[in-house]
């Protein structure tokens, strides 16, 4: 799989020190992302699903170099070459990295500078990377605006963000991410702040563009329905660890990890007479400060067995069924 992976993440970790001061180095760390492994094939979109605080946004931000990883590697394949993005420090390399990898942010109201026009916002990657002349940029921006469905482009180009609706802004944000022809886009809950009515059209737009421009997505979301609509594969994260990774339909039809099962049972069902089974997991999400060396889900797990899970470290992510990876000691290997 390594050879064909577009993006490969190996043992990625991010730790934040707690209570650090000038005189004392930190003793405690928050393990925001704790050894995450996955890979994304070219043109694939991988969903990263989990509850808030589980480290999915941190993972995404490390992939676009907004954050430095504490340890681990992110390997990116560009022009047939595989590079570790931590080693991209040279100005020219960084420039090409910035046009290869882009990000779409969660909040369309905050991700655009209120003092700059739509044109300035969309053309920003071109301007800062000194790509093309001004008329060329204008043409390109107009083209992108048409592509994301903001037509006629001329009437949108010189508006300010406050003159746009949430959906329109998110389209602008998508246009900004796509103007440099990236091959990989990290989308951090791009639809979670949008009205449900606009959500579907933005998601359709992203799917259409992914197909047309051959972009791979890392799609971060907490909404399984969105992930199902958008993603080829889904990775479920819990407290900085990936607990289950499988193709979308396989994961939804046949969840193996107890956390994924609980997550799926919490999805709203559009049926008023539907009786929700009692939530199986207990307690709330625990803190990830210096976690104990055992399964992260141990305290809440309905299946936890002290003789098996208790003495062992967090279970490794293993292929329990073909292409279906689970991190749990209690799930048996199936062969199909």
């Amino acid at each position: 799989m390594t050879t064909e992976a577009h993006v490969e993440v190996k043992n990625l970790e991010k730790r934040y020190p707690v209570q650090k001061s000038v005189f004392r180095s930190a003793k405690d760390f928050i393990h925001a992302v704790d050894g995450v492994n996955f890979s994304i094939a070219p043109g694939e979109s991988l969903g990263l699903v989990g509850e808030s605080g589980c480290g999915k946004t941190t993972t995404g931000r490390m992939l676009v170099k907004l954050l430095e990883a504490t340890s681990g590697q992110v390997l990116l394949k560009t022009d047939g070459e595989v590079v570790d993005i931590a080693n991209i420090t040279d100005k020219d390399d960084l420039k090409s990295f910035r046009s290869d990898v882009q990000m779409i942010f969660q909040d369309p109201f905050e991700s655009m500078n209120p003092r700059r026009t739509v044109y300035d916002t969309i053309a920003e990657p071109l301007t800062v990377q000194r790509i093309g002349t001004v008329p060329e940029r204008e043409t390109k921006v107009a083209e992108l605006l048409n592509l994301v469905g903001l037509t006629p482009a001329e009437s949108f180009m010189f508006r300010f963000p406050h003159e746009l609706s949430g959906g329109q802004r998110q389209r602008v944000a998508i246009a900004r991410a796509l103007i440099v022809d990236p091959t990989f886009v990290v989308a951090d809950e791009p639809t979670s702040m949008l009205d449900v009515s606009i959500r579907i059209s933005v998601m359709d737009l992203m799917l259409k563009l992914a197909e047309r421009l051959d972009v791979s997505y890392l799609y971060i979301t907490h909404d399984l329905a969105v992930a199902r609509y958008m993603c080829d594969r889904i990775a479920v994260m819990y407290l900085g660890k990936i607990v289950e990774l499988a193709p979308t339909e396989d994961l939804l039809a046949n969840p193996m990890h107890p956390y994924t099962k609980a997550l799926l049972s919490a999805v709203p069902v559009p049926d008023p007479s539907y009786k929700r089974p009692p939530v199986e997991i207990k307690g709330g999400i625990s803190k990830s400060i210096n976690p104990q060396p055992r399964c992260r889900f141990y305290d809440r797990c309905p299946m936890a067995r002290e003789d098996i899970c208790g003495p062992q470290d967090h279970p490794p992510l293993e292929e329990k069924a073909p292409d279906h990876w689970v991190a749990c000691y209690l799930v048996d290997k199936q062969s199909a």
Partner: peptide, 19 residues
């Protein structure tokens, strides 16, 4: 987030500060 967005766009520190 728009400062982060500009950073992802490849803006330098001075671009972020002044723009």
């Amino acid at each position: 987030p728009f400062v982060d967005a500009a950073r992802v766009a490849g803006g330098s520190k001075w671009h972020l500060i002044f723009r």
